[in-house]
Amino acid sequence: MKKYLYAITFLLAALTAMPAAIAAADLEINTPAIAAIQGSMQARHGQLAPYYASGAVGLTRDGLVAVRDANAVPLKDRQGVNSLVAAENKDRNALYKEIANANGHPEWESEVRNTFAQRWVQKAQGGWWYQDAGGGWAKK
């Protein structure tokens, strides 16, 4: 009888400690795969930045980027912008997936994506365009 009591007490103590430990934990982002994607995005940012500033490219509500106003891009550069956007989105999708996988919860991918979507906009420079919750474009 007594040993059951000990077992239950121990179980309860472990359970009360557990949520605190989990809440304090950081998300794992230091993996080679994440570092590689991050490096690739960082290298691309120099090319994308002018298009964010001109409004040609905006931040979407699903954590990606999109060509918002092709007319803001000279005709000769349009193909280049499309390629940049496609490459950036490929990296971003891979990044969200990798973060979820690195933490052992592939099903977190959409929440990771949503978190990033908000933080990209939060950290965007004034004058850049982003999609609001309804999907319309707004200028920061």
Binding site: D26, L27, I99, E107, V112, T115, K123
Partner: peptide
């Protein structure tokens, strides 16, 4: 299985700061 929203935000900020 709870999604750690605060930790995710912190991780996102760190990555965004580096990418941008």
């Amino acid at each position: 299985i709870y999604f750690p929203a605060a930790a995710a935000e912190k991780a996102a900020d760190k990555i965004i700061d580096e990418v941008w």
